[in-house]
Design a protein around this nucleic acid. Structure first.
Length: 233
DNA sequence: GCGACAG
DNA sequence: ATCTTGTCGC
């Protein structure tokens, strides 16, 4: 029940956060638990307002077979860390940690809006989030933080390796014909092939995963509704 | 020193 | 990410 290590340590400066990532990296498991069966898969996202310091975050759990929502949770928390490329998890996870505690239905996998190992130190928000919550996780970003890749086929389902410093850190995946690809990378308790397979399974019609789309709508609705919902400081 | 830079 | 109206295209 207690989480490992310092994955939930938020009282750090950007400089300390970088060092913390180097330590957390050693705890990552880039392999799915043996016999992993995915019945429920969740999307996580946060929404912020310009000029304000409250972040609205949440999860939406979908039934993998039908892609219909079965549970959701949200939280409004004061932001305490700036957006710094490479340190996104320190800004968003404190909010998602609260929302996670309010989620009654546990998903088998969580897909984060951002990268996993496709990160300068291989510790993107999906990796950090997976360690924090102790659950298999996937990173699915809309743009690159690091890495390059070759030509990608036009058909839906086409993939090409995302390379960084000589390593395959993720995969560019075409989830829809004629549109820009999304970038998939494993977070924790996950591997690249499984991550790509799951992202394609939850993205039958649009560029982004249904999990992400649902979570995005949820947190935007929470933000527009205002901080009436119990806010956490 | 210069440019890049998830959300 | 957010700030913002209309507009092009399937």
């Amino acid at each position: 029940m207690e989480r490992q290590s310092e994955a939930g340590r938020w009282d750090v400066t950007p400089s300390e956060a970088v060092e913390l990532q180097r330590r957390l990296r050693e705890q990552l498991v880039l392999r799915p638990p043996p016999g992993l069966k995915v019945e429920r898969i969740a999307g996580a996202d946060i929404s912020t307002e310009k000029w304000k310091d409250t972040g609205f975050g949440g999860f939406v759990v979908l039934d993998l077979a039908s892609l219909q929502p079965v549970a959701q949770s949200g939280a409004a928390v004061t932001l305490r860390f700036p957006y710094v490329p490479g340190l996104l998890s320190f800004r968003e996870l404190p909010i998602l940690e609260v929302a996670w505690a309010r989620l009654s239905v546990r998903p088998d996998v969580v897909i984060f809006d951002g990268h996993g190992t496709a990160h300068p130190r291989r510790m993107g928000i999906a990796c950090h989030g997976g360690l924090l919550l102790g659950i298999p996780s996937i990173g699915c970003g809309k743009s690159l933080l690091v890495g390059t890749h070759g030509p990608l086929g036009e058909a839906r389902g086409s993939t090409t390796p995302l390379m960084h410093r000589g390593e395959v850190v993720g995969m560019a995946v075409r989830t829809r014909k004629g549109v820009q690809p999304v970038y998939v990378s494993p977070g924790h308790l996950m591997d690249l092939p499984t991550a790509v397979e799951l992202v394609l399974a939850v993205s039958p019609k649009f560029r982004e995963p249904e999990t992400t789309r649902h979570a995005h709508r949820l947190v935007n609705a929470l933000r527009r509704a205002g901080g009436e919902a119990a806010e956490v400081e």
